[in-house]
Design a protein around this nucleic acid. Sequence first.
DNA 1: TTGAAAGCGCTAACAC
DNA 2: GTGTTAGCGCTTTCAA
Lengths: 327, 327
Amino acid sequence: MSRRPTLKDVAALAGVSRATASLVIRDERGPSAASRERVRAAAAALGYVPDPAAQLLRRGRSGLLGVVFTARDAFHADLLDGVYPAAEARGFSVVLGAVSPARTADRAVAALLASRCEALLLLGGRYGAERLAELAAEVPVVDVGHVGEPGPVDAVASADDEGVGAAVEHLVALGHTAIAMVDGGEQPGAAQRRAGYRAAVRRHGLPERIVPGDNTEVSGAAAVEALRPDLPTAILANNDQCAVGVLDALRRSGIGVPEQVSVIGYDDSQLARLAHVDLTTVAQDAGEIARIAVGAALDRAEGDTSEPKHIRLTPHLVVRSTTAPAP
Amino acid sequence: MSRRPTLKDVAALAGVSRATASLVIRDERGPSAASRERVRAAAAALGYVPDPAAQLLRRGRSGLLGVVFTARDAFHADLLDGVYPAAEARGFSVVLGAVSPARTADRAVAALLASRCEALLLLGGRYGAERLAELAAEVPVVDVGHVGEPGPVDAVASADDEGVGAAVEHLVALGHTAIAMVDGGEQPGAAQRRAGYRAAVRRHGLPERIVPGDNTEVSGAAAVEALRPDLPTAILANNDQCAVGVLDALRRSGIGVPEQVSVIGYDDSQLARLAHVDLTTVAQDAGEIARIAVGAALDRAEGDTSEPKHIRLTPHLVVRSTTAPAP
DNA sequence: TTGAAAGCGCTAACAC
DNA sequence: GTGTTAGCGCTTTCAA
């Protein structure tokens, strides 16, 4: 097996200098169309791929965007789909650090730092303010899915309170006046969703009715029991799974959804999309979140030193078949 | 902000040459105890950290193990859990290439190759023999989850046909005689699981009944519709996600699981272990597969040129609460 | 035991 | 427009 081709080989084959070949490869202006053509052909013929170590050494920059994600998280997978094109559009490569039960976020971060990435995207908002500040001293950091008070670094998250607000508006527009919410307890984001519900019903002068829950199907079913016998005409669940439990309990006792009671979930998970579930729910726009987060991270990598930005994206309602006009 | 200290700075401060300092930093033998002492002190005083890019450039090795995985695949997440410690134990770092609907395996491979990884782990067995041979010409490749005939590269996979066979045996032992399977379509591994099902039902003289599917919950739910009205007493799904769709569709139409219909998944993913799913399923030993695959890949990276190895691990049935004696 | 010198593959100045 | 030159920070001969 022969040595990998270097820029020198490409230049020799194309009959130009290494400098010219380098410019062509990097799409810099300078070389004539004829030179470009021949260098391109030579590179293709040789299967030339630039050596990142040499580039890094010379440029003093890695062109790498580090992304810490959770391997099993479907929403993170959606985010990654958006991260790759956004980073590549700006000439950065993505280097991934997986977090799993067997691998802590700290390990993932350490590995990414060792790769000399120029900025770090933290998916999942799992770090506290102090740790974020520590990391930010090493490299620009963007906290994706940040909850709570604005922290010391750029953050991108969806405005869950507004998402729930939109769900309530939808129900009000359908004529509902008795709208209950199944709470999400201590789960991340639950407080914000609860606040959104409270604000929205208050805005419309409607009664507030919250029953406890914990994002599971079982808790959704239990919530229905807790609401009896005075069932509302609409139930908001803190997430889709819980909503499915609500649906299940209602239908089991012969109550028509959406004819008698409307149900709305949260997350637009696969579950919500099942043909026979077909749940009205609130979706976060993963692509948009990813695009904005990457933009912020790379702006920092390229020298932006403005105050930390805190961006909240408005999620949108996905109307399916579990909501209808109030009976 | 001052420049990072280089080896030259350390050497100057210690009053030795860069060569000597290099030896000390890498714990190579040669330098005298006195030199070691002074270089160590100088490095500590300066907070010196070797530049990996320069080391790589000079050494001509990246110390990287590339891993192509599918972002949404729970089993791949389990494999990654095993890959990291195995690679790190041998002094390699792991560099990940994600495959998703928006990013092809070829792109992921290209990115990893560009990072100059010394070996490649392909999770998911999605490449054919020719492509594998092409890749293997660039870098040692281990095909994890390989199906079919032994290919041109090392392969580690679980014997999915035996896994499905064990699932059928379990059902037969419970008295089931009408056992259907929800297929996995073109998904990697599906053909082998289908073959295992066919062989097992034939062995017992039972009728064969296969409905199409594609490893999603939606397809599991659809499969139940396709099986109506003549529902079997047991349904085997090509993976856990699909099985959850099956469970969901059955329960939603009031059919008791496992009282009326038994359901078995495949993969023993986190999903199967959730308390309210508690799915009987077939488990592959992800940790063992990962360990063996990493070992093979790094052996190759370090010069092993023996014939391609083909390792098949036997999966085992995990009985939970979705299977019971036939009604 | 130590140091001088020669690059690894690439890019940035500067000259032509 | 293109080539020459001089390193980036490190390791590795090879002499001393």
